[in-house]
Nucleic acid binder design. Structure first.
Length: 884
DNA sequence: TCTCTGCTCAGAGGA
């Protein structure tokens, strides 16, 4: 039996006399999540007292295989022979993090904070691993080496490496692998599989094993190890995989480490061992050590504290990270085993760092929650959540020339999901955690689903695979900005001085028919630190961005163009190309970049020199902010970073782009949607908003909109832009459905006015309102009957459930507000769903309504419950405007 | 019971 629940009391470990001699114990009290609500006390014996030393009340504790016994009429609980004690099991620790914590707790922290920069040993190690996987899948060595090196062309180029020298080195490593493999593989006794993704709900560990041989983990290390035994941290890494395999009912008693740099030349007195492979036994003790180490990490992360280095037996003497470690401690005023050097950053920077560090870690928890749903939710719940495609019928599998597999399956329903072609997903036999699952790349997602995997699996289910990548990149952006950022830049960010401007634009006119746009370009050109361009709906933001970039390049600047979404990056690029500017390099994944921009996309794969110079020499480089935090992009530097959709970015997200440049220009509208974050924290306010509020002088608002008729824009202008937003031309202001050939007489009375309100007298059911959905469909039909093209009509609803409800009744585009941001339609119908009152956070943020109301060009129809809308002053004003 | 995009995934090493 397992016991699990939040700790209410944690006792001190103490020594007691037992009939087996002196033993240590600690008593902890937890409130079991299942069964009785009464707290129960569990005695932790021996080394499990370690958990009591690290855990605190409030943390979750899991004790597996509890010993239950009766003592004086009461049931008592204690750890038994088979027990494991897990602190905060929901916190998922990476196997590699356990490995680095074993090396040094401080190294774990440093790796997390600063990321691992682009360096040759790491890239080479990755290539050797890839080749290893290929060999296991029976691929020819030479072709594998050629292709795997080519795949890393960009990184190798940036590191100034030539293909031949890398190939030589990889070949030497591969020879060791091949020699060793041939001994086992040929006997037919070895059963191999490569790249195994493992997640453990019980132990809160996730990771990916290089390979399994007869069910035992094999880890490849391209470093040198001349000792007889494997390095301790390497053993721990393999043992962690063994622990997860054990949980899945596959007992593992050995592990193998393969040190590919060991050759016959390295024979020493001590080793006397020619083989690169070192087997070691994995006993209970090692597994317990893995869990205890993992517990230390989880406990520390629970209160977001910072390790000092004293947590582990590390010696700073030989550490490669010693200097970095001391600098970080010095700058952030942290206690550290290595000591500290350099000057601390200012008090407010320190406070900022801590605040955002916590906020980002909170987001990490949100990612962990997504993992938990993989095993907590049923398949049907996952599917309803759009996070899985279930009920797939396997159609076949085919081994590809490179030894990987292509799996096909048929969809049995037309359910939608978040999954898209090009995504990484978890392909499984129906059970993504306890069953057989493989990390897959989605190739095709139609009637038929096609994915590629390293090993075959019956494709019955496909799950979204959560990733901590974004969170990790926010952390490195924060690190780079505060610890490595120029003091001058930080003076502005921390409000110690106002942004400076020089008159570089002089009398130049950049845009001659729109004063605000022209002023915005000038401001960006003149900015010595930063410039802010505030672009309300339809004000020609993208055009202005393109003109600004051209002007910056003409002035001799190298420019980084960035935005949160791929869509925004590509839109801006499109505008730039429309203006005849083609000296662009787009960095991003093939599936992320829009098709018409693939011709300027920089491939990662190819000749190192060619790729590196293509990136280096480009006057304009475009990438999402997430990509700006990648190893490749962190090596780049720019004169100016221009960030679109900046009001939808968190501060660290914006900094990821700004960090790469001397100056930055942010474009956005803080009156529209804020950043999407799960937790309520500091990440909710964008840097754009903070700066525009503290430095209005550094901003220009584009005040003429080219989208909406006068009648439609009036409310948003008054409510959100102090009445400053106005139609760019008389034509824009006066546009009407009749321009599309639709007469008022063709429309029902209720929608005859360009802005109308309809109350269908429906009732909210959960997040839907079926009656309202019916009515919305009728209204759509009426517009269509009057002659409006279906492509010109859009429906917006606050909830996804209502979006689905309406979608079933019509063929026009129906979407949530969030997904509609950035686009527009001739006719927009908004479904409010709410009846009775406007309870719910969605209605509280009026910015969302601003977006919904400003998508329409010629006609806007609001559909909702008058009583509910009248109950709130803001919505009441909206109604008065609509009913005018 | 709210909205939801990014990103190859995670791991690749140095003595």
């Amino acid at each position: 039996m397992n016991l699990r629940g939040p700790l209410v009391e944690v006792g001190e470990p103490r020594e007691v006399e037992t009939r087996y001699g002196e033993r240590s114990l600690a008593e902890v009290t937890l409130r079991p999540e299942r069964g009785t609500a009464d707290p129960v006390t569990v005695t932790l014996w021996g080394k499990w007292t370690h958990a009591a030393e690290h855990a605190e009340p409030g943390m979750d504790l899991l004790v597996t295989d509890v010993d239950e016994s009766e003592y004086k009429g009461e049931t008592t609980y204690a750890t038994g022979k088979e027990s494991f004690v897990v602190v905060e099991p929901d916190f998922l620790v990476d196997v590699t993090d356990i490995r680095s914590w074993v090396q040094c707790s401080r190294m774990y922290y440093l790796n997390k904070l600063s990321g691992i920069p682009l360096n040759y040993p790491v890239v080479k190690g990755t290539i050797v691993h890839d080749v290893f996987g290929d060999l296991l899948r029976g691929r020819d060595l030479d072709s594998s080496i050629d292709e795997r090196i080519e795949e890393r062309g960009l990184e190798l180029g940036l590191l100034g490496r030539e293909v031949e020298e890398v190939a030589d080195e990889v070949r030497r490593n591969a020879a060791a692998i091949e020699g060793w493999l041939s001994q086992g593989v040929l006997t037919d006794e070895d059963e191999w599989r490569s790249e195994y993704t493992l997640i453990s709900p019980t132990f809160g560990i996730k990771g990916r094993a290089d390979a399994l041989r007869r069910g035992s983990p094999v880890e490849l290390k391209t470093g040198k190890n001349l000792k007889r035994d494997p390095r301790f941290q390497d053993k721990i890494q393999a043992a962690a995989y063994a622990l997860i395999l054990d949980e899945r009912g596959v007992p593992v008693d050995t592990g193998t480490l393969l040190y590919t740099k060991n050759t016959t030349l390295d024979r020493t007195e001590e080793s006397g061992d020619l083989s690169p492979a070192k087997d070691f036994s994995i006993g209970r003790g090692l597994l317990e050590f893995v869990v205890r180490t993992r517990n230390e990490i989880a406990a520390m992360e629970h209160d977001v504290s910072v390790p000092t280095g004293y947590e582990s037996n590390s010696k700073c003497q030989y550490c490669f990270e010693k200097d970095t470690c001391m600098v970080v401690s010095g700058r952030l005023g942290q206690e550290s085993k290595a000591g500290a050097i350099g000057n601390p950053v200012s008090e407010d920077e320190r406070e900022y760092f801590d605040r955002f560090y916590r906020a980002i870690e909170e987001e990490r928890r949100a990612v962990h929650d997504e993992y938990r749903k993989l095993w907590d939710q049923t398949a049907e719940e996952r599917a309803d959540d759009d996070r899985a495609i279930i009920g797939l019928e396997p159609l076949g599998r085919e081994e590809r020339p490179d030894g990987t597999w292509e799996l096909r399956a048929k969809k049995t329903d037309d359910a939608v999901s978040k999954l898209r072609e090009g995504d990484v997903a978890l392909a499984s036999d129906g059970h993504p955690v306890e069953g057989h699952a493989e990390l897959a790349r989605i190739v095709e997602l139609g009637e038929e689903v096609v994915v590629t995997t390293d090993e075959p699996v019956p494709l019955r289910r496909l799950d979204v695979y959560p990733s901590e990548l974004t969170v990790d990149r926010l952390l490195t952006a924060l690190h780079d900005a505060i610890l490595k950022g120029s003091p001058d830049r930080k003076d502005v960010l921390f409000d110690r001085r106002a942004p400076d401007f020089s008159d570089r634009s002089a009398e130049t006119t950049y845009i001659d028919n729109n004063e605000a746009q022209d002023e915005a370009v000038s401001l960006a050109i003149d900015a010595d630190d930063l410039a802010l361009i505030h672009g309300p709906p339809g004000t020609g933001k993208t055009y202005t961005i393109a003109r600004t970039i051209r002007a910056l390049v003409e002035d001799g600047n190298r420019v980084l163009l960035s935005a949160f979404t791929n869509r925004a990056v590509d839109n801006a690029l499109e505008a730039l190309r429309d203006q005849g500017f083609e000296s662009i390099v787009r960095v991003g994944t093939e599936s992320g970049v829009r098709e018409d921009m693939l011709d300027v996309r920089l491939s990662r794969s190819g000749d190192p020199n060619t790729l590196a110079s293509a990136l280096h020499d480009a006057p304009v480089v475009a990438a999402t902010t997430a990509t700006c935090g990648s190893r490749v992009m962190r090596e780049q530097s720019f004169d100016v970073a221009l960030v679109d959709e900046a009001s939808q970015l968190t501060e660290p997200g914006t900094l990821a782009a700004a960090n790469l440049a001397d100056r930055f220009v942010l474009v956005g509208d803080h009156k529209q949607l804020p950043p999407v974050v799960r937790a309520e924290n500091d990440l909710q306010t964008s840097l754009f908003q903070r700066l525009i509020e503290s430095h209005p002088d550094a901003s220009v608002m584009l005040d003429r909109q080219y989208r909406m008729s006068q009648r439609i824009q009036a409310f948003a202008s008054a409510e959100f832009y102090d009445g400053a937003l106005r139609p760019a031309t008389g034509e824009v202001a006066a546009q009407h459905l009749r321009d599309l050939g639709i007469g008022v007489a063709d429309l029902p009375d209720e929608t005859a006015d360009p802005v109308s309100f309809v109350d269908p007298d429906g009732r909210r059911v959960g997040n839907t309102n079926p009656v309202e959905a019916d009515r919305v469909a009728e209204i759509v039909a009426a517009y269509e009957a009057a002659g409006v093209d279906a492509d010109d009509i859009g429906v917006i609803a606050p909830f996804r459930a209502q979006v689905a409800e309406i979608s079933r009744r019509t063929d026009v585009t129906v979407d949530t507000v969030d997904r509609f941001q950035g686009s527009s339609k001739e006719v927009i119908i908004v479904s409010f769903v709410a009846t009775g009152d406007l309870d719910g956070p969605l209605f509280e943020d009026h910015r969302r309504i601003n977006v919904a109301l400003t998508r329409a060009k010629k006609a806007l129809c609001l559909v909702g419950d008058a009583d509910a809308l009248e109950s709130d002053p803001f919505y009441d004003r909206m109604l008065q405007w609509a009913r005018r």
